[in-house]
Structures are given as C-alpha cells and as structure tokens.
C-alpha cells in the first residue's frame, strides 16, 4: 500500500481540502466539491450471458442494471452504472481499487468480458443545491427535469466541451459528474463560473 501523501488530486493546485466549507452556505444556490480517489472500474461483458451476470452479481452483491442509464446500489458506497448495452462502471467509496479489481477479474475468469481499473482515468466532482440543475443546463444538453431524470439514473453527455458521465445522487438535487482527469481543472472552473449568479459554496473534498 502506497502512502496516501504521495497521491495527488488533479485539483491539488487549488488546495480545496484546506480551504473549503463543510456544507453549502444558506445563501448559495449550489455547492461544488471534488471527490478524488473513488474507485471506478470499467466492466465490459455480455448482458445476455447469465453466467456473466450471475458472476458479477455474486462478486458485488448488487444487481447488474441492464438498461442504459440505470444505476444500482448505494451512491455513497458501491454502485453499478449501466453505460452501454455491454458496458458498466462499478464505483465504490474505497480509494484503493485493487481488491475490487481482483475479485471482479476472478469472477469473470475466462468469460468474454473485461475488467479494467479506470479510477484515475476519471475525476469526479459533485454539484448539489437547489440551483444545481440550472448550472448544469448551461453546460449540458440533457433534460434533467425530475420527470425525465432522477436518483439512480446516469447518463453520458457533455459538460461544455468535456465529455462527461453524470449521475444523480439524491433529490437535493445532488449530481456527481465524472470527466476525464485532464479536464478536471476546466470542469471545475467552468462550473464555478457558471454558478456565479446563484452563489457557489466550495466544499472540502
């Protein structure tokens, strides 16, 4: 196990851990927080293969969502996001992906499937608060109205000019936005600027 102090968030230059608030200020419409180091494992496999589905569900203790855009599990703990007909993300609050990668790799064995640790390929930030949808509407062409989107839903789209995987965590509403790691600074600054008219609380990571 590598020492924690060796690792870096792509936003470490902003020193968010030290400067942020613990929760959203009353007068601010949104809160913005980084969520580095969460486990994100990319899983590819055949949803129509019962053996594969069974192996995954046993290894994770979660149902494998089959419809693109569905999420199973606990958004603050372990969950599975269905990103494509044969593609999922297994995400977990654990900041060391290796045990889960190992158990999933063992679970799929020789099946036609793929398990890849992509925790560092992606960077997550969370946007929450009563105006969160308004901020996202500036960057993203998705319709996030409660009638068409909600908790336990995810979608891949764009955050301004960065590809994004979006999921709604709860009805606050709170959203988790995943962009590729190199887009972290762009996404953070873009959202901070877009939220300015509503007020943005920066939270500790």
């Amino acid at each position: 196990m590598v020492e924690d102090f060796l690792r870096q968030s792509p936003l470490s230059h902003l020193a968010l851990a030290a400067s942020g608030r613990s929760q959203r200020a009353e007068e601010d419409g949104v809160a913005l927080a980084e969520r580095p180091y969460r486990t994100v494992i990319t899983l590819r496999g055949q949803a129509e293969d019962a053996v594969f589905v069974e192996a995954i569900q046993r290894a994770l203790g979660l149902g494998l969502p089959r419809k693109v855009g569905q999420v199973s599990g606990d958004p603050r703990g372990r969950e599975i996001l269905c990103l494509g007909p044969d593609e999922w993300w297994v995400t977990d609050a654990a900041d060391d992906a290796e045990p889960l990668v190992t158990s999933l790799t063992e679970a799929v064995g020789d099946l036609f499937a793929q398990v890849v640790d992509t925790s560092d390929n992606w960077f997550a930030l969370e946007l929450s608060g009563p105006r969160a949808r308004d901020v996202l509407a500036k960057a993203c062409p998705l319709d996030l109205h409660p009638r068409t989107f909600g908790p336990a839903r995810c979608a891949q789209s764009l955050l301004a000019k960065a590809p994004m995987t979006l999921q709604q965590l709860d009805d606050t509403p709170a959203f988790r936005l995943h962009v590729r790691r190199s887009f972290a600074d762009y996404a953070w600054r873009w959202l901070s600027d877009a939220g300015r008219e509503y007020g943005v609380s920066i939270l500790q990571s």
């Binding site: 693109v68 855009g69 494509g84 007909p85 062409p141 998705l142 979608a155 891949q156 789209s157 764009l158």
Partner: peptide, 10 residues
C-alpha cells in the same frame, strides 16, 4: 437506441 432522444452534438 440505447439512451433515447439526444442532442446532435453528442
């Protein structure tokens, strides 16, 4: 076919 109606920019 998998995600429903989406904007052309995607």
């Amino acid at each position: 076919p998998h995600c429903g109606p989406r904007a052309e920019i995607e």
